[in-house]
C-alpha cells in the first residue's frame, strides 16, 4: 500500500498536539502506583498536584506542560507500506511546523549558535526523525515524542572500560540520579544505554527513557539489571521534584547493544514525569491514533 505524504503531514501535525495533551495510560497507572506507596507527606502532596494537573489538562483541553520539547518522530515502515522516503521526511517537517503555527505552540527550537528562533519548532536537524523497518506493522507507524529539556539537560555518557565491569554501570546510574536531583522533574523514567558505540549508547538511553512503563528489556540479563536498578534508585529519597520522598523514578529502563572487547560504555537519559508520547498507524483503511 502506498502512503501519501499528505497523510503523513496531517498525522505529524496531529501527533504533536495529541502528545502534548494526552498522557499515555501506562504513565497514569505509574502515577497511581507511586502515589499509593508513597510515605512522605510532601511527596504525597506533590504527586497529588501532578495527578490533578493531568485531570485539569483533560478537562480544559490544555497542554500538560509548557515545554513543547524537542520534537522527535520515530517512523517504522511495515512490510506492506510503500513510501517516498524523501517526501516522508519533508511531510513530517511540514506537519511539525503547522502544529506550531496553527495551534499555536511555543517553538522551543533555536539555532545553537545564534539562538535565533524561527517559531516553527524546526531547525537544522530538527524535528529529529528516525526511520526503521519492522514486520510488526501492516502499515506505517509514527511515534511522536516531545522531549522535555529539563530532563534532556541531564544526559550523560561514560566510556567505562571492561576492568570496571558491571559495577561501573550500576554506580554510574545511581550517581546520575543523585546528580540530577529535582532538575529532571522527577519522578522520572531513567533510561540507560549499555554497550554499542558512544553514539549508539546514548541513543539506546533515549529509547529506554521513552519506552512505555511496564515494558521490559528484550534481553533477559538487561531485564534483570533494570529491575534491580529500579528498586535501588528509589532507595535514595530524592522524591518528586527533588523535594524528598520515595518516588524518585517510575522505573529504570535498560537497552543493550553488543560492544567492543575493549569497551564498556554506559549512557543515561531521563524522561520527566510528563512522559509524553503519541503514535499513529497509517494503513490503507485510514489512521489509528494511540500512544
Amino acid at each position: 500500500m502506498r502512503i501519501a505524504p499528505e497523510r503523513i503531514e496531517d498525522a505529524a501535525k496531529e501527533l504533536y498536539v495529541r502528545a502534548l495533551k494526552d498522557l499515555p495510560p501506562d504513565i497514569k497507572r505509574g502515577f497511581a502506583t507511586l502515589a499509593a506507596r508513597e510515605t512522605g507527606a510532601t511527596a504525597k502532596a506533590v504527586l497529588g498536584t501532578m495527578i490533578e494537573n493531568i485531570a485539569v489538562a483533560e478537562r480544559t483541553g490544555n497542554l500538560l506542560c509548557q515545554d513543547t520539547g524537542i520534537p522527535i518522530y520515530n517512523v517504522t515502515i511495515g512490510r506492506e507500506a510503500e513510501v517516498d522516503g524523501v517526501a516522508l521526511k519533508a511531510a513530517i517537517r511540514r506537519g511539525c511546523e503547522r502544529a506550531t503555527r496553527e495551534y499555536p505552540l511555543r517553538s522551543s527550537i533555536v539555532h545553537p549558535l545564534t539562538r535565533r528562533n524561527e517559531h516553527t519548532s524546526c531547525g537544522i536537524g530538527v524535528p529529529v526523525i528516525h526511520v526503521d523497518f519492522s514486520d510488526a506493522y501492516a502499515g506505517l507507524k509514527i511515534e511522536m515524542i516531545p522531549k522535555g529539556s529539563g530532563s534532556e539537560n541531564n544526559s550523560w555518557l561514560r566510556m567505562a572500560i571492561p576492568a570496571e565491569g558491571i559495577d561501573a554501570i550500576r554506580t554510574f546510574v545511581i550517581d546520575c540520579v543523585l546528580g540530577a536531583g529535582g532538575k529532571t522533574c522527577p519522578p522520572t523514567i531513567v533510561g540507560v544505554g549499555v554497550g554499542g558505540t558512544a553514539d549508539l549508547c546514548v541513543h539506546l538511553a533515549k529509547v529506554a527513557a521513552t519506552r512505555s512503563l511496564g515494558s521490559r528489556c528484550a534481553d533477559p540479563d538487561g531485564a534483570e539489571l533494570e529491575a534491580r536498578l529500579s528498586a535501588a534508585v528509589n532507595l535514595l529519597g530524592v522524591g518528586p521534584q527533588g523535594l524528598g520522598g520515595d518516588a524518585t523514578a517510575f522505573a529504570v529502563h535498560v537497552e543493550l547493544a553488543a560492544t567492543h572487547i575493549t569497551m564498556n560504555p554506559v549512557a543515561v537519559n531521563m524522561q520527566c514525569h510528563s512522559a509524553r508520547r503519541a503514535s499513529a498507524l497509517l494503513t490503507a483503511d485510514g489512521v489509528e491514533y494511540g500512544y
Binding site: T49, M50, N62, L63, L64
Partner: peptide
C-alpha cells in the same frame, strides 16, 4: 518558592 514543574495546565488556571 517551589512550584510543581510539569503541572502547567493547572498553573495556567
Amino acid at each position: 518558592l517551589a512550584i510543581i514543574g510539569g503541572a502547567a495546565a493547572l498553573e495556567t488556571t
